[in-house]
Amino acid sequence: MELTEPLDSQRVSPQAPTQADIDEFRRLGAEQAAGVAIVSTVLRGRDYAATVTAYLSVSYDPPTLLVSLYEGSRIAQAVVESGQWALTLLPTEQKRAANWLASPGTPTEGLLNQIEFKRGPATGCAVIAGSLAYFEVATTAVHVAATHLLVVGEVVGMGSEAGPSPEASPLLHYAGDYRRLKP
């Protein structure tokens, strides 16, 4: 049954969105819960890592993932140049790590000194300890999309640090804050 009440709507100009358009888009987009992960890579012996919520499974055959990274960020440039990366899915206990790696101005030296991690066996990229799951990925394509790079890659290694547990709760981002799935 079609409702007759009009939708609350704001028209957006694709040629030149205003700051109000951008702010409203971000506000409305925050109404979707997203899993929190860490993307990491190693470039010239230095670790790079950042918190992300914009990632997805592209295909199961072959296993393929996509991550969206701000084009001007250190992590985007390092991931593109290195050609390999790891995606670590975080449990709620890793909120501190997520906050640290989402903070602007994190140091380039010693970035992971305060976070427990292991090296992925296939890529050598950092995998955060206690992860729900991790995927090591070899980049197959990079697409420019507005202010971001969509980095696509085939999974070359995967596993879990936490192991299956009915008590495990993924760290989620919803309405501008971190949340947990289970109380």
Rank of each mutant, 00 (worst) to 15 (best):
I38Y: 06
Y60Q: 04
A175E: 07
A145D: 05
V42C: 13
M158G: 06
R44N: 15
T147N: 14
P63L: 10
P91D: 06
H173K: 10
Y70N: 11
T140Q: 15
L7D: 06
H173Q: 08
L150C: 10
A30N: 12
P62A: 06
P170N: 05
R74Q: 12
R26G: 06
Q15V: 10
V137G: 09
E5L: 13
T53K: 00
L181D: 00
P17V: 10
Q77D: 14
V67S: 10
P62F: 09
E2G: 10
Y178I: 02
W85G: 03
L43C: 02
E31T: 08
L3W: 04
P6T: 03
G45L: 04
V36N: 08
V137P: 04
P14E: 04
R179T: 01
A33E: 00
P170R: 03
T51A: 04
T88Y: 08
Q32F: 12
P170H: 02
V152D: 03
E161D: 12
E81C: 04
M1N: 03
N99Y: 07
F117I: 01
G83Q: 02
E167A: 05
Q77K: 14
R180Q: 12
A145F: 09
G120Q: 08
S59F: 03
P164K: 09
A86P: 04
T53G: 12
P91Q: 02
Q32V: 04
E161S: 13
E167Q: 12
V144I: 04
M158Q: 14
T140D: 15
A78V: 11
L7K: 03
R179W: 10
W85L: 11
V36P: 05
Q114W: 01
A145R: 07
E31S: 05
E31G: 11
A16S: 14
G124I: 13
L90C: 09
A168S: 15
V144M: 03
V67N: 04
F117C: 12
P164Q: 11
G157C: 08
T106E: 08
P63H: 08
G153A: 12
G120D: 13
L112F: 10
S103R: 14
R180S: 11
S131D: 13
F25G: 11
L7I: 13
D8T: 14
P62M: 05
R180T: 02
D61M: 00
G83S: 03
A76C: 14
P166Y: 06
N99K: 13
E136A: 11
Q94R: 11
R96H: 12
R119P: 07
E109R: 12
I75G: 10
Y48M: 00
G110T: 11
L66K: 02
I38V: 15
R44D: 15
R119V: 14
V142T: 12
Q32G: 00
S13L: 09
D61I: 00
A129S: 15
D177Y: 01
S68F: 09
R96T: 13
T92N: 00
G105Q: 02
L150P: 12
T92H: 06
R119S: 15
T108S: 14
A33W: 09
S131K: 04
T147V: 13
V144F: 02
Y178D: 01
V39Q: 06
A50H: 05
L181W: 01
